[in-house]
Design a protein around this nucleic acid. Structure first.
Length: 905
RNA sequence: GCCCAGGUGGUGGAGUUGGUAGACACGAGGGACUUAAAAUCCCUUGAUCGCAAGAUCGCGCGGGUUCGAAUCCCGCUCUGGGCACCA
């Protein structure tokens, strides 16, 4: 019976180009909808109307409603189940743009894993929430002139709506939001604990300042020299700020990396970011002509104590306190102060973009004493030395450090700087195989015909070994070698010399081993409105006082003016009624801290809140935490490698130290999600007009098709461009699954080959889901369906197995077909199919036959056939005979069950 | 500059404990069905030569190891990503 006739004009520019007309007849037959369409010629319209029997829209709506009503994805509270899986996505910050098709890719993957785990009988925790504090949300609010609270809520609602269309198995009863006072109470609580332990402190050091976002930023918030958010050039600005001593955890953060099952790339960038360097701090005493200064010194950090004999001068950073300490003892102090002013006013980009060109000033009137040999060397101030790394001062060895070399070259003539080679980086004579020539001493050239531009010499303390090094004064090789010109240490290897030189200095109290890190303390305050208030007050009498735990949360007050002030104060400073308070300690007048926390605060522990989302008396219940943690599978973008993933690991280790959690590492296994680019090959962005909205795709092809396609596109962690043409492949695949149901027969049996294929497919799909090889899992399912299509009829039990395999990928369709074909209950809780290993082995196999390594033929053999028989049958093949003909078979290579290779003369 | 990842048909990509390269899918070409489209189904589809059987060449480039190399080794090149004066 005809239930509906439509006459439509389609003119959606994204998918259909121009427009066309269609006439659609909808028939209702039993519970199916059959749609016939007549349309004016426009090929892409077919995408809409190939859905004979399979009306994705109504079907997906139906099941999403049902799952919600029946709380299908409610997390099991059974903490006795030994099998648990915590499957987590990096939660999004809801921007005003909404989702494009790239965003759900990771969510689909975790959803597939979570669904399979449920089917395998695991207790599964698979939640979702919102990282809604922070600059992006606030900048968006400012742009649209709406209150951040309002715009954030709107964006969350929009995101949730978009996500819900995809059919994800989140337990929404555990939804969290970092801007919820009940949530950030515990962000503040953790801060107080850090404050208590001395890990959170106030600092007045110059920090990164974004002039556009009008706030201080952590090193991690920079993209090179610009603000990671808005792209503005960063300035250095001295101001009061809260800092967290993440550097106390540098060694543990580094040591923990090795054991993690994370992509090597992320592990490597964390190692680089932490940047551990083993070296030594060496003390250079300072003196002047009259030896009046006796108690001043410079401590330098070096990883190359073995080059100490090659020191030409010392360099201190412009920020180094020595300059103020010595004051007029420096003869040209005003010139030096000018230089300090000049270089500290430079932006980071100016200071680094000068690249190789280096500037500096010599401190006149004083010299540093090399502790190893008493040499007096000049002291410079130069901004190629960083004030906040190591000791802020270095010893310069131009012969073995490129930067020192460049600086020396520039000022060599002005200040008479020496370049002294103290490490022989040459090659041992026996390695380059040049005839012996006994030459004593150093720097005696030789005209080796092999290496004419090298000169050779013998180091007197080492018998019978000659060294080579390159001629010329442009030696600036950092490599290690053998010490020369180094007094009693001459002849030692670099590694050996470092130990011995530092040991010798240590005896004199002028040096000791030291480890330094590139990681800097975490600048934790933001001069912005939209963040967690830092829960401390400033009391005239007591100084900085923590807000008592029982008064948490310190709620963010509602405010009319939330634009950043740019003065170094947050907009909160303007709300007198909120700022003025009493001191919890003495009861006197006090002012609240008006800086807020960075965006990364709330996301540093959110995975714990999902476990126990309504807890008001503890951050997380210990028993529940011990059960669910650590996160078993964590999926998100690679851009968080040195931000969120460092902060969260730090936060977790801290919580471990105070006994709040049971393990040291939060995320056991991490997977990258690759980006989905636009169809034009560029990044998907509003700017390029190439954004594909998942809502549109779902409306036209269905959520199941979107899910299958995104998993089938290619390797999960790879960046791949979207293709609306290719999505048809996924759609057709699902239609085939649908149509298979027409050929179900209770009494049917499968052909032997198809049965083997079925078992192999069960194995492969399971393994592939576990290893994030979703593309080949989908491919295996397609191969199975192609084979089932060729079967005259399909047993219903087999069909249901097939549906179970499809269910994690296309849950709506699988659920519908499962219900229609005798499945009991929801397929969500149906058992994951098991396979029979013995049935994965075929009874016959194809043996490849090669002659001299070239494929010349194949034949089919039974499993278990003997080597002799394989060889004989291979030899008997006509195409093989032809290639061997009268030649002699010198050798036969036999690989069991795979191939035979005849080697002929 | 340093570190990491990668380079396979017209396209997305399979295949890496060395053993039948191009699975699966898209696109394209041909055919069936149709008044005609669309959808669906069947066939072909790495390149070159050939009527054909078949042959040769092919996984960024150049070498090497091996009976046999996309896979291992050496050198180079290009692309993407990260770090970047960290002493």
């Amino acid at each position: 019976m005809i239930i509906e006739i439509e006459n439509n004009r389609y003119n959606s520019p994204t998918l259909f180009g121009d427009f066309c007309y269609t006439i659609t007849l909808r028939f209702s037959l039993h519970s199916d909808t059959i749609i016939y369409t007549h349309c004016t010629d426009y090929p892409r319209v077919r995408a809409l109307h190939t859905m004979a029997h399979y009306d994705h829209t109504s079907l997906e709506k139906k099941w999403q409603k049902k799952w919600a009503e029946e709380h299908t994805y409610h997390t099991s509270e059974d903490l006795t189940n030994p099998k648990k899986a915590y499957i987590l996505d990096m939660f999004p910050y809801p921007s005003g743009q909404g989702l494009h098709v790239g965003h759900p890719k990771g969510y689909i993957a975790t959803d597939i894993i979570a669904r399979k785990k449920i089917m395998e009988g695991y207790s599964v925790l698979h939640p979702m929430g919102w990282d809604a504090f922070g600059l992006p949300a606030e900048n968006y609010a400012l742009k649209t002139k709406t209150h951040p609270k309002k715009s954030t809520d709107d964006n969350v609602a929009r995101y949730k709506e978009q996500l819900s269309l995809i059919g994800l198995s989140y337990d929404w009863e555990r939804e969290i939001n970092t801007t919820d006072p009940a949530y950030y109470k515990w962000t503040q609580w953790a801060f107080l604990k850090m404050f208590e332990k001395g890990l959170a402190y106030e600092s007045y050091e110059p920090i990164n300042w974004c002039p556009s976002c009008k706030t201080g930023l952590a090193n991690e918030d920079l993209d090179g020299t610009v603000c990671e958010r808005c792209g503005s050039e960063i300035e250095k600005k001295p101001m009061r700020q809260w800092v967290i001593k993440i550097t106390d955890y540098a060694d543990r953060l580094l040591a923990g990396v090795d054991a993690l099952d994370w992509p090597e790339q992320i592990k490597e960038s964390q190692r680089n970011w932490i940047g551990r360097s083993e070296g030594a701090v060496i003390t250079f005493r300072i003196t002047n002509q009259e030896s009046r200064i006796t108690d001043e010194y410079i401590e330098v950090f070096t990883t190359r104590a073995d080059t100490l004999f090659g020191v030409s001068y010392c360099v201190i950073a412009p920020e180094h306190p020595l300059i103020n300490r010595l004051g007029d003892a420096i003869e040209n102090i005003s010139r030096i102060k000018n230089y300090v002013k000049y270089s500290t006013q430079k932006t980071i980009i100016e200071r680094t973009s000068e690249g190789r060109d280096k500037t500096g000033e010599k401190l006149e009137g004083i010299v540093a004493i090399n502790p190893i040999n008493g040499d007096e060397v000049p002291i410079f101030v130069a901004d190629y030395v960083l004030g906040d790394y190591g000791t802020g001062a270095v010893m310069a060895v131009p012969a073995h450090d490129e930067r020192d070399f460049i600086f020396t070259k520039k000022y060599q003539n002005t200040f008479d700087l020496k370049i002294k080679t103290v490490i022989d980086v040459g090659t041992k004579i026996d390695e380059i195989k040049v005839a012996h020539e006994k030459v004593d001493g150093v720097e005696i050239s030789s005209n080796s015909h092999l290496f004419p531009d090298w000169f050779r010499y013998k180091v007197s303390s080492i018998d019978d070994i000659f060294f080579y090094t390159k001629v010329g004064d442009d030696i600036c090789d950092e490599n290690e070698g053998i010490l020369v010109n180094s007094g009693e240490f001459t002849g030692l290897s670099s590694a050996d010399a470092r130990e011995k030189i530092v040991a010798a200095l240590e005896e004199k109290g002028l040096g000791k081993k030291s480890v330094k890190y590139k990681l800097r303390d975490w600048v934790f305050s933001r001069q912005r409105y939209w963040g967690e208030p830092i829960p401390v007050v400033h009391c005239d009498a007591c100084g900085v006082v923590a807000v008592p735990e029982q008064e948490l949360p310190v709620t963010l007050p509602d405010v009319k003016q939330y634009e950043p002030t740019g003065t170094g104060e947050s907009p909160l400073a303007g709300i007198e009624s909120w700022v003025n308070t009493t001191c919890p300690k003495c009861g006197g007048r006090a002012k609240r801290e008006t800086n807020t926390m960075p965006q990364w605060a709330g996301s540093s522990w959110y995975y714990l809140r999902y476990i126990d989302p309504y807890n008001d008396i503890a951050l997380v219940d210990k028993e529940k935490e011990a059960y669910w943690m650590p996160v078993d599978t964590y999926v998100g973008g690679a851009e968080h490698a040195t931000r969120h993933l460092i902060y969260a690991r730090f936060w977790h280790k801290f919580l471990y130290d105070i006994g709040a959690v049971s393990g040291e590492e939060p995320f056991m296994r991490l997977q990258h999600v690759g980006l989905i680019g636009g169809e034009d090959g560029r990044k998907m962005s509003k700017r390029f007009g190439n954004v594909i909205n998942p809502d549109d795709i779902i409306a036209r092809f269905g959520a199941d098709t979107l899910r299958v396609y995104e998993m089938f596109m290619g390797p999960f962690d790879q960046n791949i461009g979207w293709s609306t043409d290719n999505i048809m492949g996924a759609r057709r695949f699902l239609e085939r699954v649908w149509k298979l149901s027409e050929r179900i027969e209770d009494e049917a049996t499968l052909s032997h080959d198809t049965e083997i294929l079925l078992h192999k497919t069960i194995q492969k799909v399971g393994d592939d889901i576990d290893t994030f090889a979703f593309n080949t899992a989908v491919s295996a399912l397609m191969i199975l369906v192609n084979a089932l299509e060729k079967e005259p009829s399909i047993p219903v039990t087999i069909y249901r197995i097939c549906l179970s395999l499809v269910a994690p990928f296309a849950p709506h369709m699988a659920e519908e077909l499962f219900a229609r074909h005798g499945g009991e209950g929801s397929i969500v809780r149906a058992p994951w199919p098991s396979y029979d290993k013995t049935k994965c082995i075929a009874s016959t196999m194809t043996i490849a036959v090669q002659v001299n390594g070239k494929m010349r033929g194949t034949f089919v053999a039974e499993v278990g056939i003997s080597e002799e028989e394989v060889t004989a049958r291979a030899h008997a093949l006509p195409e093989i005979k032809k290639h061997i003909s009268d030649k002699v078979v010198k050798k036969t290579i036999y690989i069991k069950d795979k191939l035979v290779n005849f080697v002929v003369a």
